[in-house]
Design a protein around this nucleic acid. Structure first.
Lengths: 338, 338
DNA sequence: TTGAAAGCGCTAACAG
DNA sequence: CTGTTAGCGCTTTCAA
């Protein structure tokens, strides 16, 4: 069957009719007599005919491929989103091709190029942590190639996107800390140019204000999103003259790294320091103490991203909807009442 | 650029030469004069010409697509292997399409069908936990469609595969337990029809024998690989008349589930019960206590699987190499000396 | 040294 | 109701 995929021609030869007759019969064209149609469809089924997508693609100039670019594929966050995208794509008869940027803008650009060469019909992407200029995406927009962002977006680019409500989430965390008696709340952020960093930081600041807490610059730190750098940032916080009594990290990677550091410093969670993550990792429930965190609707985010993509294809480049997904604070041991 | 991909024809029109001349010049065919060749190549570069893979595919009857089927994509184990496959595939100018069976044989069969329709050139798969009959794969073999298995393989099918040395790994674990003073060693296995279950069980039994320990059927249990069922199996062990003093699980999922259960029972690790996993999860170092486990060379497994695939394509279906990867026991807190 | 034509599998406009 | 033809982008004989 490898080289033995049956073609319309094969069917036509066998039945001694023309190729177009076969083609029409297979799509129930009214022009073809009922009997002939039946006969042809039977044979097609018997021979296990399936249309050659290459031929169709060439004809219609479409590959039914969506290029998906993510920072990495091994983090549960991304693989879960990918599952969501895949599910919806499949429903539409599309399949996805995945590339990971490894958080490198260079690889991101390269992936865009490669996907273009492969004639993907469009892109669904979450930018790398390095991505602060967007020429490679602007080029896509100019050429009207469908592009959708999720989670980390390029704000200046007006394309459809799905993000989580980071402002709200961060506010929830601050309030939660406050209500449980924590006052010196620290936040480990990410690169400033990323919308997720900015939003959560805004929420952090707003939350502090709403709780009547004064913002202390010493309690705000930043890392490049790697576990190593998150550990470094945590150490910095722990070596402060003013030791925080609560920390929340931009994401799961950071929270886990912080947990390790805090333990290493001989501090207890949540007694000495409370900790909250931003994640949907099931591991949150395994670590000790179990980790309070913002649960992120990853599967939904993937599905919504794909839905946006198909709407974009349909409605054209004027479609610019942004979906903001609500998150939920899941309280566990790491932030218990003092 | 969406519909504006440049074609040979475009180039030909612009230069007022024939399409075949363009085609030849682009591949440095000696027939074409040096100047013309240069001129054509320059224009091609300028216009950003890239060959249409659909057209090439149709012509050569190849899609450059490999269908990859895994039990799920969100587990680090699989996503890491996928990364490895992807890396090698890309080097060969192929790309991979991923489907997850969700551990359901039905979905696995469906994915094979779908991929076939998409004209993938072959398959790289890790079978679902339900997979105990193989018609869908036998069909591929009959039709000489390249097929490679990794981790969980179909033993009766003689195709290339990469597996980890489960016998050796399990023996290492038993010896490790024994040397650290544990004598009542339990093993939570998986479905009997999976090679990974069988191998590790064999290693378990051999290890016991080598250590002069008598096999106790009460200490051998089985689960279906889901976290829930692993929890159930753990409970069963913990409710035994003979409480084990050490447990190892077939994989990471099981080990983590067991850890939860053990803690829930108010037992301490490793004081009351030692625990060892089979995993490469970085979370092993975050849980408390940190989890001793067999580190599994996932990235390498992915790469090797892809390498086998390309060898298979090249050498034809007589190629049946099996690669057995060595594993390493990484000792952490969960199995400390008594 | 270059061009014309056929063919990969399919659809659709145009003829009968 | 059915067949012929052209064309999607490309390579490859075969002609010139």
């Amino acid at each position: 069957m490898s080289r033995k995929h049956i073609s319309l021609k094969d069917l036509a030869n066998e039945l001694r009719v023309s190729i177009s007759t076969i083609s029409r019969a297979l799509k129930n064209h009214p022009d073809i007599s009922a009997e002939l149609t039946a006969k042809i469809q039977n044979l097609a089924k018997e021979r296990n005919y399936t249309p050659n997508p290459l031929a169709m693609g060439l004809l219609k100039q479409q590959t039914k491929m969506i290029g998906v670019i993510v920072p990495d594929i091994v983090t549960h966050f991304y693989s879960s989103i990918i599952s969501g995208i895949e599910e919806v794509a499949k429903q539409h008869g599309y399949f996805i091709v995945i590339a990971s940027s490894n958080e490198l803008i260079e690889k991101e650009i390269e992936s865009v190029e490669n996907f273009l060469k492969s004639r993907v019909e469009g892109f669904i992407v979450c930018v790398s942590r390095e991505t602060s200029h967007f020429e490679h995406f602007e080029k896509l927009i100019q050429n009207e190639i469908p592009l959708v962002f999720f989670d980390r977006i390029c704000e200046p680019l007006k394309v459809p996107s799905v993000i989580a409500d980071g402002v709200d989430a961060a506010k929830k965390i601050v309030h939660h800390f406050y209500e449980n008696g924590y006052k010196k709340i620290a936040y480990i952020s990410g690169p400033e140019h990323l919308n997720i960093s900015k939003n959560r930081k805004d929420g952090y600041l707003q939350g502090l204000e709403e709780c009547g807490l004064k913002f202390d610059p010493q309690l705000l730190t930043e890392c490049n999103l790697s576990a190593e750098d998150a550990a470094r940032a945590t150490q910095q916080l722990l070596n402060n003259t003013k030791l925080p009594d609560a920390i929340f990290g931009l994401n799961d990677t950071i929270a886990f790294a912080a947990m390790k550091e805090i333990k290493k410093h001989g501090l207890r969670i949540p007694d000495d320091i409370a900790l909250v993550g931003f994640t949907d990792e099931f591991h949150s429930t395994i670590v000790e103490p179990t980790l309070t965190s913002i649960s992120h609707p990853t599967l939904e985010m993937g599905k919504e991203a794909a839905n946006l993509f198909f709407q974009l294809i349909k409605k054209g480049s004027n479609f610019k909807q942004q979906i903001v997904l609500k998150t939920e604070l899941v309280v566990r041991e790491s932030s218990k009442k003092r």
